[in-house]
Design a protein around this nucleic acid. Structure first.
Lengths: 137, 137
DNA sequence: GTTTTAGTCCACATGTTTGGTGGGGTAAAC
DNA sequence: GTTTACCCCACCAAACATGTGGACTAAAAC
């Protein structure tokens, strides 16, 4: 399951996608409009900024805004960033690969199954972008 | 990611699938062959028994064994049982559905995306069974 | 029928993650 | 130089993950 943090991140990103190219948006505005705890949201947005997804301005007229075209930001990228690995086993993860203990990958049926799950999942997450977060018109 | 518990469960089930129709297998044997902590494994197997996946015999000649044909036991069933929901959001879960807070499902893009992810995942997990845990010959 | 074998059950311990909060610091605008 | 608003650090409680220990029970063997 996605953590609350991830769900908050997506809510915020959806809001910033709506407001794309309309200047910086206050944390407090996102917080109240999307019902996300203010201080928690602060941490999340900062993390997204450090990951180059968002940028910010300080002082009056400041706030957060998308650094890139939302159509170019993949859902998979956000999930990996905020939620962690997408794969269900370390040994089938592309971005967080780690060898399994006591498990020969070439002779592990679970490995193969979870690789298929990973591919099926990525097939969706890598093709969806932030614009897909907005409800259809 | 799958919990260690889930990984242990699959290791044990793979072993019991190998030994299907060969009588009960000792917990201690599974533990040593598959390198799973004995007492932890005990809890896991008991849980699988209560869920009607396994059955057991006490006393000499006793142990655990698969209650059904391994080809009839879906990977999805085990994951749900030991690891919890397969979907990434409560609001798209078939077996653990729960409404999201402050989220209109009909107007939530993330909802749709995660529904697609769920379907893609289930497409694999519902078609794979315990026999697929064994390495290919 | 008592001993041995092996699963059952419950309680607890410990470490990590999750979901937050509080408060001061810093940079930009006015 | 005051106000605005993001930046950064430290801490906190609850939940969950990953086990362990010990007593109990049922079945088989003798």
């Amino acid at each position: 399951m996605l953590s609350k943090k991830s769900q908050y991140a997506f809510k915020a990103l959806a809001y910033l996608t709506e407001k794309y190219n309309q200047g910086p948006v206050l944390i407090s505005e996102i917080s109240s409009k999307k019902k996300v705890p203010l201080k928690f949201l602060e941490n999340i947005l900062l993390e997204l900024k450090k990951a180059d997804i968002l940028d910010s301005k300080k002082g009056k007229g400041g706030g957060y805004y998308l650094k890139k075209d939302p159509a170019q930001v993949r859902v998979a990228t956000i999930v990996r960033l905020v939620n962690g690995p997408i794969a269900m086993l370390p040994c089938v993860s592309l971005n967080f690969y780690h060898r399994c203990d006591n498990c020969d990958e070439t002779a592990c049926g679970l490995h193969d199954i979870m690789k298929q799950v990973r591919d099926a999942t990525l097939n969706v997450m890598e093709t969806k972008t932030l614009v897909d977060l907005l409800p259809m018109k």
